[in-house]
């Protein structure tokens, strides 16, 4: 997290409500995002994440509530907000008929950067986002990861101090996902404020300073990743043994209650760090207990939801790639 001199709010929202027809999408949201930090809105499809981004980025008006973004009142000075923000939506917002370079040029022109400054900025972003080899090819031939990179590069042409990233890695392969994470970390290091929505707990955990869990239009819990994870019981190590004797010995040595005699497994709460894992194995070695199989389970979105709402995240979250929530 970049240290800024003052901790002014980049976004402050109170009492935000939004309904579409008779469907309540956002139901009394209060939140505060400090400048220079990453705030992550975590939730399954249909929770209202995209609607939240669309409201905060001036695309859709809120029904009620007072909202200030980048120092401007959202309802009264939308153009002031627009001048300060950058948005990369869930669906790619690149011009398919233009080349990567032309897409960036278009943004530079719309930001009235001027020829020299525009050219400098485009060269810089092309380089930073590794778009060089395809910069002269139309965006329609780009791969998924490449499109997201171009999309984000376009968002950054105007040098926004606050950017909204709506599910920036949904549908990306693991490698592109990591590239995207690195890019986001780089932005944060420069002092940019990031408002990120995601349905992946590990993504929020990796990137965010604060996480708010959104469910059915309400924020069910908010805190730092560590605060949240401490309250989630889902992370554990699962040990399987070859016979009941080994299982019982291990249970005694480790003083664990979560024992399954039929499956011959033990479940030990853990956040998956190496030190505690090593201690655990050392203790079993000392007691001469043979472990047949070990697996580590990190908490996922379902665990979060189970912990804070008592119900698992809606099954829609499993179909992340095809999903589009509003």
């Amino acid at each position: 997290m970049a240290v800024t001199t003052a901790t002014r709010p980049a976004i402050s929202v109170s009492g935000l409500r939004k309904t579409f027809g008779d469907k309540v999408v956002l139901d009394g949201i209060d939140l505060m995002v400090t400048e220079g930090t990453v705030f992550s809105l975590l939730g399954p499809n249909g929770a209202g994440k995209t609607t939240m981004v669309r409201i905060l980025s001036t695309l859709v008006p809120a029904d009620a509530g007072s909202i200030r973004v980048a120092g401007h009142d959202l309802a009264r000075e939308p153009d002031g907000v627009r001048a300060a923000i950058g948005v990369t939506g869930q669906f790619s917002a690149v011009d398919n008929l233009l080349t990567g370079e032309e897409n960036l040029r278009l943004m530079a022109d719309l930001h009235h950067l001027g020829r020299t400054e525009g050219r400098r900025r485009i060269a810089q972003l092309t380089d930073r986002f590794d778009l060089g080899e395809l910069a002269r090819k139309p965006a329609s031939v780009y791969s998924g990861g490449m499109r997201r990179r171009l999309d984000l590069a376009m968002t950054l042409v105007g040098d926004p101090r606050l950017i909204f990233l709506d599910e920036p890695t949904t549908g990306l392969d693991p490698r592109s996902r990591h590239t995207m994470w690195q890019i986001i970390r780089g932005l944060v290091a420069e002092g940019v404020t990031v408002f990120l929505t995601t349905q992946y707990l590990d993504e929020a955990d990796q990137l965010a300073d604060r996480i708010a869990v959104l469910d059915h239009g309400r924020i069910v819990v908010e805190g730092t990743p560590d605060e949240l994870k401490r309250r989630i019981p889902g992370g554990h190590i699962l040990l399987r043994f070859t016979d009941v004797t080994a299982l019982r010995t291990a249970a005694r040595v480790l003083a664990v209650a979560q024992r399954d005699d039929d499956a011959l497994t033990l479940q030990i709460p853990s956040d998956g760090d190496v030190r505690s894992l090593r201690t655990l194995l050392d203790r079993l070695d000392d007691a001469h207990v043979e472990v047949d199989h070990l697996s580590i389970h990190t908490p996922d979105l379902d665990d979060v939801f189970f912990a804070f709402t008592g119900t698992p995240a809606s099954t829609a979250a499993q179909n992340a790639v095809t999903g589009g929530d509003r």
């Binding site: 695309l59 917002a93 690149v94």
Partner: peptide, 13 residues
Amino acid sequence: TEGIVDRFRTMAI
């Protein structure tokens, strides 16, 4: 039908 118009709308143009 593509995202580009939404992008334009979030810009001060």
